[in-house]
């Protein structure tokens, strides 16, 4: 048994992806089978094994995926960002409102989404990197600011992005084009870019190394503050990206919401093997983690449970992953 496991671990593909990631993919498949069997039993008349279910899970996975990719950079530096969900909503609200109220062209609105996200990232990053504020409290404060700003700007109205036969709906093609889940392609492309940035550029190298040992990197003559802030900016910009895919899939955004997505994005990261202590990050793991979160929420709904189960489970997942990470690090010391 153990031998077989070792043999499996030494397969080339397994080695390339990392054993944990392969296990996670196994988890996805298991979850899918489980939901397919359980949902008709628990909730009569549902059939989980439908393409529409899968597509709906994918829709959820896209924006969670972008959020999780962003926060992976921040967690890699040993910090945390609790503001991404509300920041995503805030940028969707403000740019959507501008489009409706002031007739901004669509392309400008999309760019605005990313920019607003990046601005939030810059502010948060500046507080953390240059003023040395704890990132959790800073980002929680910014979360409130993002929520508030969204509702102040829109006068607490729900904002709908164009849909159906309305003009200017081409941004929805990002999510799905003639039945093809284009969102998946975008997510994979962005994930690949993220992986390249993290593993093959100076920024990524510094971000990971300063998460592992900030003082050693500083004493190597690197201005760590700049790179620490950059991680937050990347995170914010990707939250803006997530906003595009959120409205592409669901079109309407409500002010004052979005903080549950933080939790799910963070859960996706830690499940994927990114360590809350910093210095260790896996983009592939994050993407798989995001899809686990998405599938979980689809499954929970299909089985007729309320979304609250998802919230409670997310908490347990983060707790479990962090305890496991803490204990394993303690053992290796």
């Amino acid at each position: 048994m153990k031998e077989a496991l070792n043999k499996f671990k030494s397969l080339k593909l397994v080695r390339m992806m990392g054993f944990n990631r392969v296990v996670l993919i196994g988890v996805i498949i298991l979850m899918y089978i489980l939901f397919t069997i359980l949902s008709p039993i628990l909730h009569q008349g549902t059939n989980f094994a439908q393409v529409s279910r899968l597509l709906s899970a994918l829709n959820y996975g896209y924006f969670i995926g972008f959020l999780a990719l962003g926060v992976t950079f921040v967690i890699a530096t040993g910090n945390i960002d609790f503001s991404i969900g509300p920041v995503m909503f805030c940028s969707a609200l403000i740019s959507g409102y501008c489009m409706k109220q002031y007739a901004f062209p669509l392309w400008l609105c999309l760019i605005m989404c990313v920019l607003i996200g990046a601005v939030f990232g810059t502010v948060g990053g500046a507080f953390v990197a240059y003023l040395h504020l704890p990132s959790f409290i800073t980002s929680m404060a910014l979360m409130q600011v993002a929520k508030g700003l969204g509702s102040v700007f829109t006068k607490t109205q729900t904002v709908s992005w164009p849909q159906g036969d309305a003009p200017n709906t081409w941004f929805r093609n990002f999510v799905r084009y003639k039945g093809i889940p284009t969102g998946l392609i975008f997510l994979i492309v962005v994930a690949i870019i993220c992986a390249i940035v993290l593993n093959h550029t100076r920024a990524g190298r510094y971000i990971i190394c300063l998460g592992a040992n900030k003082e050693a990197v500083r004493l190597s003559g690197v201005d760590t503050r700049r790179w620490e802030m950059l991680a937050f900016i990347i995170c914010g910009a990707l939250a803006g990206f997530a906003a595009i895919f959120y409205v592409g899939a669901y079109t309407t955004v409500q002010p004052g919401m979005g903080d549950t997505f933080n939790n799910e994005a963070i859960a996706a990261c830690v499940m994927g093997g990114t360590s809350m202590a910093g210095g260790l990050a896996s983009i592939l793991g994050t993407v798989i983690g995001a899809f686990i979160v998405a599938l979980m929420q689809e499954g929970i709904l299909a089985m007729g449970f309320s979304i609250s189960y998802q919230y409670a489970l997310t908490g347990l997942i983060v707790l479990g992953a962090v305890i496991a990470d803490t204990l394993s690090r303690r053992r290796s010391n």
């Binding site: 609790f82 549950t260 939790n263 609250s308 919230y311 409670a312 997310t314 908490g315 707790l319 962090v322």
Partner: peptide, 14 residues
């Protein structure tokens, strides 16, 4: 903060 974050999520659903 990480510990109480998890219980925060947990309570929200529970």
């Amino acid at each position: 903060f990480i510990m109480t974050l998890s219980t925060m999520m947990f309570c929200r659903g529970m």
